[in-house]
Computed example of a mutant assay.
Amino acid sequence: MNMERREVLKAGSGLGLLGLLVAAGLITPGEARAEWAKAAFDAKSIEDTLKALGAGKPDSSADIQITAPDIAENGAVVPVGVVTALPDVQVIALLVEKNPNPLAASFTLPAGTEPSVQTRVKMGQTSDVYAVVKAGGKFLMTKKEIKVTLGGCGG
């Protein structure tokens, strides 16, 4: 499954007219994407990633929790979750500081969605993992160090 197809599929039931246009071949999946944070995923540092996300320098928040193991036995599949009680959450992003491209995942949450996400990330080495949350138009973040005992994306 290629990345463009994933982007179209993740839109789910909200495809409507765009889904019909893609299915009919009138537009490409790339044209159907409303938002694609290519610059953020291509960034090589935490600062550049935050800038590309439009986050600037987010304030630290105790209202955001990262659920992940303190020690990951295999850096290739590290389960990481983010949950917050902040109201009006629009975006949750996961950044892994020492990865070649820090942005590991970005989730756009529709209004009324519970602000909780779970995924697996690849980590090449022990690193801080940042959760960046856009809530009410303001960016906030927290971090957690995860120790990796087997390499995941180094090499």
Score class of each variant (00 low, 15 high):
residue 45 S to H: 07
residue 64 I to D: 06
residue 63 D to R: 14
residue 85 A to R: 15
residue 91 V to Y: 06
residue 60 S to M: 12
residue 96 V to H: 01
residue 88 D to I: 06
residue 87 P to Q: 06
residue 125 Q to L: 05
residue 48 D to L: 12
residue 111 A to D: 14
residue 76 A to V: 10
residue 117 V to M: 12
residue 109 L to M: 01
residue 95 L to E: 02
residue 69 P to N: 13
residue 99 N to G: 07
residue 68 A to C: 10
residue 99 N to V: 14
residue 106 S to M: 07
residue 96 V to N: 10
residue 75 G to Y: 00
residue 107 F to S: 07
residue 70 D to R: 12
residue 113 T to A: 15
residue 120 R to E: 15
residue 123 M to Y: 07
residue 74 N to F: 11
residue 68 A to K: 02
residue 59 D to I: 08
residue 115 P to F: 02
residue 121 V to I: 15
residue 78 V to S: 02
residue 70 D to L: 09
residue 79 P to K: 11
residue 65 Q to R: 14
residue 44 K to Q: 13
residue 109 L to S: 03
residue 54 G to C: 08
residue 83 V to D: 04
residue 118 Q to M: 15
residue 92 I to N: 00
residue 87 P to H: 08
residue 93 A to Y: 01
residue 113 T to K: 09
residue 66 I to H: 03
residue 97 E to I: 07
residue 52 A to Y: 03
residue 107 F to W: 12
residue 95 L to M: 13
residue 92 I to G: 03
residue 80 V to G: 04
residue 106 S to K: 15
residue 93 A to H: 05
residue 55 A to L: 01
residue 77 V to R: 12
residue 52 A to L: 04
residue 97 E to M: 06
residue 107 F to H: 12
residue 60 S to A: 13
residue 120 R to N: 15
residue 93 A to P: 02
residue 77 V to L: 14
residue 81 G to Q: 05
residue 69 P to K: 11
residue 72 A to S: 15
residue 74 N to A: 13
residue 120 R to P: 00
residue 78 V to E: 00
residue 48 D to W: 07
residue 68 A to V: 08
residue 89 V to E: 00
residue 94 L to Q: 06
residue 99 N to T: 14
residue 82 V to M: 12
residue 83 V to S: 13
residue 69 P to E: 09
residue 107 F to K: 06
residue 59 D to W: 00
residue 72 A to F: 07
residue 81 G to R: 04
residue 50 L to H: 04
residue 119 T to G: 08
residue 58 P to I: 11
residue 76 A to M: 12
residue 103 L to I: 12
residue 72 A to W: 07
residue 68 A to N: 03
residue 46 I to R: 02
residue 73 E to Y: 08
residue 83 V to F: 09
residue 110 P to E: 11
residue 51 K to H: 10
residue 121 V to E: 00
residue 103 L to S: 06
residue 46 I to S: 00
